[in-house]
Design a protein around this nucleic acid. Structure first.
Lengths: 217, 217
DNA sequence: AAATCTAATTATGCATTCAAAAAAAAGGAG
DNA sequence: CTCCTTTTTTTTGAATGCATAATTAGATTT
């Protein structure tokens, strides 16, 4: 499912720093303590600094000349912009997936859908959101467009830290669930056009944004 | 117009290596000679290697364990995938630009449009393609979505090396020109919906892909 | 005691060094 | 002469070192 273990030191380090940021251990706006992280990871500054360059490019940190790296703040605007782009990418993914999705992938998505429904009924929001997220990701993967998948995953990474924290209204829940029903239906019919248009209208992001806006900045 | 000069050494180096790749000085599949480039740029290996990590993440090179960086090959599939995503992003940009574009930006695009027409009439393909490209970029910028702009520019960078090399049919020319007329019209009306749908159907990419496929891989 | 200036400390950016791995070159057997 | 082995050279990945800039702590002044 996930990419092949890349076994580059800077890659490992980047992932761990991303996690620290996502978990809030490194707070937005705070400086990234090179020395401390080096000791914690048991590596020298070289691979850590390489990782920071990549993370800066990904938008997780920003580099200030002679002042090292700070954890980037996720502003309301950036969050909104990111969701806007992700939604558009999902729409494209849906269109492509309609034509390209395999039976196994479809079955997997259906399974996730029923799991999601179960969590909806039982009111388990965390698990619901996780399944929801996995469905969207599976559709993106089913597009079989590697560039799309890469870009989407990167954007998804960036907003990870505000994900799964929002309290959503029950209105949203039922709405989102029925939209998901329609998505599955479109997928079963291999109707990419339909799926794409459902996804591009899908409220999820908009609602999530308003709920998550509180978290950001 | 362009971003603030970031004056980081690895950033400078990355840019120059990107240029070398785009210009074909570093051929696809060939190894990236660290030592030589360091001498050429007058820097040590540290910033060069930092740059390579970033370039790897951008898809310009790939890192092989203990074998350094190779210039990534732009396969037909990757090229097609990239255009697919770019087209989708342009459609989103068009929609947003309709609502957000400033008078100055619109005037600039109109000017570019007339330049493009002039190059069309005079049969100057290079200049035509450049103006064409600039129009599309200007629409993306007018979207005012920084995330979208960043992602688009990055993808555009990646395919730079095969741009401006294709021989296009005259059929395509007239078609593309008339679509551009419609785009300008939609922009004048601030009709994002219309502009978005024109852009998402815009033949440019598809045709370019078939013309450019020859170049890739 | 608050504010400003100066010295000590620490962090940063980049160059250099070093061990391990890969590539290239030299040698030997068939 | 070709193929395989062994040695030498080069390249790579990562740690360390060093000069400079930023931060902190302390002294001085008001």
């Amino acid at each position: 499912m996930d990419k092949i273990r890349q076994s580059t030191l800077h890659g490992e380090v980047a992932e761990r720093v991303r996690d620290l940021i996502a978990q809030g251990v490194l707070a937005p706006g705070s400086r990234v303590p090179e020395k401390q992280l080096c000791e914690q990871f048991g590596v020298s500054r070289t691979p850590l600094r390489e990782a920071l360059k990549v993370l800066a490019h990904e938008g997780f940190v920003e580099l200030l000349p002679n002042r090292g790296a700070r954890v980037a703040k996720l502003t309301r605007t950036t969050l909104k912009n990111t969701f806007e782009v992700m939604q558009s990418l999902e729409a494209l993914a849906g269109e492509l997936a309609g034509a390209r999705i395999s039976d196994a992938e479809l079955a997997n998505i259906e399974a996730l859908h029923y799991q999601m429904l179960a969590h909806y009924k039982s009111g388990n929001m965390q698990e619901y959101l996780l399944a929801n997220q996995q469905i969207h990701e599976a559709i993106v993967v089913a597009s079989q467009n590697e560039v799309l998948i890469d870009v989407y995953k990167n954007l998804n990474h960036r907003v990870r830290r505000v994900r799964f924290t929002a309290e959503l209204s029950s209105d949203y829940w039922s709405q989102a669930v029925s939209e998901h029903e329609a998505m599955i239906e479109a997928l079963r019919k291999r109707d990419g056009k339909e799926l794409g248009s459902i996804l591009s209208c899908h409220l999820r992001n908009k609602v999530e944004v308003s709920a998550l806006e509180e978290m950001a900045e």
